[in-house]
Design a protein around this nucleic acid. Structure first.
Length: 277
DNA sequence: CGATTCCCCTGATAGC
DNA sequence: TGCTATCAGGGGAATC
């Protein structure tokens, strides 16, 4: 599941090899994955445009084109962005192919077809609702401890749901929410209003250290995620609770438990992540 | 207006 | 063995 560290790894890969290339054409067998405009128009809009930069906002990948347009990708659960030589072996689940100069191809593969791409005018992107509603990025300099406290202020409800709400903080998905809560020893169903200052600080530090480490290790490949070359990430071996149901906690030996929190599989240690405070 | 449920899609797994 | 039913999962839309 591409969350911040995975999309950041893809962004860095594309910065190295995609910037400067020109889009020669687009093909798809899944036009549904192109939002807002008909495929024909999309084709015309991107043809002959040059890639000038790559950005990331939360889990969104943004490719800046030289006509003041941005290509925005959301990889959802099973999306992959692959940069290949023209004619390289077919990547499974390829849905959209951008043919590029220098004999390259950008392939958007997605087993589940939940991912999408859309065009947005660069100068108006800040005004677009879907972009305006994205919260503070975990890796941005604005994501300080005091900003974190501010986002928690006057909010009620479960802490895990809060962490995964992209409108508040952008970039944390299911894997890293589970991991950060384990590291901070906080039960995923703890109410925000029950957390004391020390716990909030532990959680803030846990989020930053885990996300940064996952970026260094090029992401987590528990599902479909790979980088632009098709290589898996290395963070999987660092996972402390995610997917470890029934296995013993690395801290206290208690069996890791799986529950469902707001519709998502949630893993935690019932002994060192206690509910009451 | 906030909280919950449904839905998109496919492959893996369970159950018979 | 081989079929069918169930489930996971991010986030937008519909519904409660």
């Amino acid at each position: 599941m591409p969350e911040l560290p995975e999309v950041e790894t893809i962004k860095r890969g594309l910065k190295k090899s995609l910037v400067g290339l020109t889009i020669l054409g687009v093909k798809t067998d899944t036009p549904k994955m192109i939002l807002k405009i008909p495929f024909k128009r999309f084709q015309n809009e991107v043809k002959w445009k040059k890639v000038i930069d790559i950005q990331r906002k939360g889990k969104l990948l943004v490719i800046n084109l030289n006509n003041n347009q941005n290509l925005i990708f959301h990889l959802k659960i099973s999306g992959r962005i692959l940069l290949r030589d023209y004619g390289a072996p077919v990547d499974e689940y390829t849905r959209i192919v951008f043919k590029l100069s220098k004999n390259k191809e950008l392939r958007f593969a997605d087993l589940r077809k939940f991912g999408w791409v859309r065009l947005a005018p660069a100068n108006k992107m800040g005004e677009m609702l879907f972009f305006k509603e994205i919260g503070v990025d975990v890796l941005s300099k604005e994501f300080t401890f005091s900003r974190f406290l501010e986002t928690l202020k006057n909010r009620r409800g479960g802490i895990k749901k809060f962490l995964m709400d992209q409108k508040i903080i952008a970039g944390i998905g299911n894997i890293y929410a589970n991991e950060a809560l384990w590291k901070a020893r906080i039960h995923p169903e703890r109410k925000i209003e029950s957390l004391n200052e020390r716990e909030k600080e532990n959680l803030y530090k846990a989020i930053l250290s885990i996300i940064k480490k996952a970026v260094r290790l090029r992401g987590t490949s528990v599902d479909q995620y790979v980088d632009v070359s098709g290589e898996k990430g290395e963070f999987e071996k660092e996972l402390k609770v995610y997917g470890r149901v029934g296995k013993s906690c690395y801290r206290c030996d208690q069996a890791v438990v799986r529950i469902v929190v707001s519709g998502r599989g949630t893993f935690f240690c019932p002994k060192c992540q206690h509910l009451k405070q």
